[in-house]
Design a protein around this nucleic acid. Structure first.
Lengths: 237, 237
DNA sequence: TTCGGGCAAATGTGATCACAAATTGGAGGG
DNA sequence: CCCTCCAATTTGTGATCACATTTGCCCGAA
């Protein structure tokens, strides 16, 4: 709660810190917070959020939240209805199908490029992430699972060094993640059969094609899971 | 210049109109204006814009401009540098290559889907648009050319009815359009050899594969043009 | 109990203000 | 003639206010 009527929010930590931060604006922090919330599934499709609500929750003024929400909604990660209200977009069978089509077009290709820049040390890192994925899978912790699964895929994709494809793929993840979370809530995380092991092997063996196919298989697997439980979690209303 | 210290901007037209408008906010108008400026090439890569400058130019307060700029920058259509300044992103050979790769992955597929929903009347409409394309091509009017070329492609893509792929493709166009404009300024618009005629024929004959291939060829053609003049217009600084 | 009607609270939107950081411009010294 | 430094201006950022619209809720009539 800001007390001073003027001034720049003046958080307590930023003043004493040696400022190693390259200059984080409040807006960026809010946006990252929202992205994380979307990607981990804390935001349910159809759930409506408010500017002032988010602002109070994050301890900032509505202003940075406005810009962050605007940025997210530009990528269809949030929806601004005709009456102006903000909500996490509902999922429809058609939209889900389109998202998975787009993922299948972009992500395997991105993995193919990334393979050139991945080495054994990345395989080790991926292995560690995948361990946490499996742990949260067996533990039924859907939220952690989604975070680690995201970390796994994007550790690969990031290696491609693409400043164009990467944001597109991120946009897709932001769109389907909230729905994904509700699906896991219904069918449980045990039904998951990702192809992470094959991907790790491909990275270790520097097999670009293999990595691409593993990613494609992983996406197709998620597609089947969603198809199987299609119609249940869709259109919550 | 708004005179009243309060109130909602109060445009002159909206009050007397029978309100057929579904509720256009000032921010959306600003965003559309910026999109149009980007797509038609009025914004040069590297050119820096200011919030207050755009606001004054459009006759609104800096506020709606802020949100519009934020939305565009979320899709890499505008760049917000570390010092906060806003500018049209520079083009690099790598970035250009990535954009064209992404276009080649998405647009032909989008056209393939769209073909199902396109009929003879669309072929007529596309023909009319393509006439204007040719006209502006021979006339050397690069700005009109870019607008009409955009209209041509997106008349096709829109028919796919995809709410997911479409924004991704739009994002790509917003990214390369400003650079494209500078290329045409150098090599002239005469060097263009689009494959619009083949696309129109494919639409008329309801040949989905043919339409997909025509779109792919069109993109590849632009790729070659850009490759040929590569290194000249890049990194203007 | 159910269905309207109307009032109060909440919400997005646009404008304006204050401030810090950065840019710019020119004056002064080498 | 060129470089350096300082001040004035510009610019993005965050906060706050005012307003129109909408949502939510309670009360009263059928």
């Amino acid at each position: 709660m800001p007390v001073s009527p003027s001034q720049h929010a003046a958080p307590s930590s930023d003043v004493v810190a040696p400022a190693p931060a390259p200059r984080r604006s409040v807006r960026d922090e809010v946006e990252q917070s929202l992205r994380a919330g979307l990607l981990s599934g804390r935001f349910v499709p159809g759930h409506s959020v408010t500017l002032r609500g988010l602002a109070q929750e994050l301890g900032v003024s509505p202003m940075p939240v406005r810009e962050a929400v605007r940025a997210l909604s530009a990528g269809n990660a949030l929806e601004i209805r005709s009456n102006g209200r903000i909500q996490v977009p509902q999922m429809t069978p058609q939209r889900l199908s389109e998202i998975l089509t787009a993922r299948l077009l972009l992500e395997p290709e991105l993995a193919l490029v990334a393979a050139e820049n991945l080495d054994a040390s990345d395989a080790v890192e991926l292995r560690k992430i995948d361990d946490r994925v499996d742990e949260s899978l067996s533990g039924g912790d859907a939220e952690t699972y989604m975070q680690e699964n995201f970390a796994f895929h994007f550790h690969i994709y990031r290696a491609a060094g693409s400043q164009v494809l990467m944001p597109l793929v991120e946009s897709l993840w932001l769109q389907f993640a909230p729905f994904m979370r509700t699906v896991y809530g219904r069918v449980g995380t045990a039904a998951l059969d990702d192809h992470h092991k094959e991907a790790i092997d491909a990275v270790r063996g520097r097999d670009a094609r293999g990595l691409r196919d593993a990613v494609a298989a992983d996406i197709r697997c998620g597609m089947e899971l969603l198809d199987r439980s299609s119609g249940e979690g869709l259109q919550d209303a």
